[in-house]
């Protein structure tokens, strides 16, 4: 199934901040999307994702939130405390 995602937060050049589309297995979760993205960023910035915040179709989500075809996932990393 295809879902769309967008990353906003601590700059990671390979992710950019535009909306992108990826294909995931049926029954995939937010975590599966992240595993896919971690490959794109060479694992280098993996730690950043550990504490990211997510929205799926504008609602709060977590790593185990199931995804459906056509979902829009936002991934945020917040610097915090400044």
């Amino acid at each position: 199934m295809k879902v769309k995602y967008k990353y906003i937060g601590i700059p990671i050049p390979s992710l950019g901040r535009e909306t992108k589309e990826v294909a995931l297995e049926a029954n995939a979760t937010v975590n599966d999307l992240l595993i896919l993205l971690e490959r794109d960023i060479n694992g280098q910035h993996k730690d950043i994702f550990k504490t990211a915040n997510f929205l799926v179709n504008n609602s709060r989500a977590s790593l185990d939130t199931p995804l459906s075809k056509g979902d829009m996932i936002w991934i945020f990393t917040v610097l915090g405390g400044g």
Binding site: I8, I10, P11, L79
Partner: peptide
């Protein structure tokens, strides 16, 4: 890198939307 380049304001968009 982000702090050093953009300061704390580099996180404004993510904070506002999240």
């Amino acid at each position: 890198d982000s702090f050093g380049t953009y300061g704390t304001g580099g996180g404004t968009a993510a904070s506002a939307l999240s």
